[in-house]
Design a protein around this nucleic acid. Structure first.
Lengths: 145, 145
DNA sequence: AACGCTATGTCAGAATACTGACATGAGTCA
DNA sequence: TGACTCATGTCAGTATTCTGACATAGCGTT
């Protein structure tokens, strides 16, 4: 910017984008040494919390299309971080699971990401964090309506 | 998701991404009928607030690389929404300005985007909005540190 | 003046994510 | 049962964004 610190009438929408962008950059930075990117990490984290998620469900959870998630899953499968049955147990849905190797890689990544989040919240009180939680959820609900 | 509404231990980071993603989707939706996307709009809005911004400055403000912003500016120039001098008045920096046509297109887009933001904040009180402002700025500051 | 350092605009190629399309399976309803 | 709708996994092609690289201009220090 030609003149910083003047942040003239920044809207909440812009601030939201700015914060999200800064968070993503910080995450990419700590994940790169581990050979991961954010989508990569999001996928493994989702699988740790909800084993057996399908490709489409993972895509929605990581905010990408199911085609994009599919190529990521193929790569993760090739590297041995996740497994999918060769045939669908029911319907066409292929439930995905972490392998022990994937779980180990996720642990390191989780620690790195947690440290970023801790830094992000460093100057906020408990009650401010609770407010942020409520407010963000309200925004999401209203936007989806 | 296989089971929605259970939002198990969602982190603030995830919520931030979720809100930003929902906002972007909502913006794309209202901008599409106007033949614009979000980066498109961000560029014009920045130019309205700070006429004469350079390519690199616009890129930083819209959270893309300067290469990406450059191709966008070339398109905007071709369509007659912005103008850039053929030669740099000083150094290599090419100051960009809105044309009357660009200003008119921006006005419609601004109205559409504002309506989205109003919807996003519909269920929040004035003081909650002020809290959101403070909190997001704190997060950004901490992440950049 | 001369040397580094940084930032800019731009070109080319690579990587990444997307849109479109298809066949298939589950669920619904008449 | 049959028709319809919707969601899934996947393939192909397109579009978009990024990384790498280059020449150049401003700025500060020596």
């Amino acid at each position: 910017m030609s003149q910083d610190g003047v942040d003239l009438e920044k809207s909440l929408g812009y601030l939201l984008k700015e914060a999200s962008s800064a968070l993503r950059a910080a995450m990419e930075e700590v994940l790169r040494p581990l050979g991961m990117n954010v989508t990569h990490y999001a996928c493994l984290e989702l699988l740790a919390q909800r084993p057996g998620l399908s490709n489409s469900e993972l895509a929605r959870g990581a905010f990408v299309t199911r085609q994009t998630m599919n190529v990521l899953l193929q790569a993760l499968e090739r590297e041995g971080d996740v497994t999918r049955p060769a045939e669908a147990p029911v319907g066409k849905v292929l439930p995905t699971r972490l392998t022990p190797r994937g779980r180990r890689r996720l642990e390191k990544a989780s620690a790195a990401v947690r440290s970023v989040e801790v830094r992000m919240l460093a100057d906020l009180t408990e009650s401010e964090q609770a407010s942020a939680f409520r407010i963000l959820q309200s925004m999401i609900r209203s936007l989806r309506a």
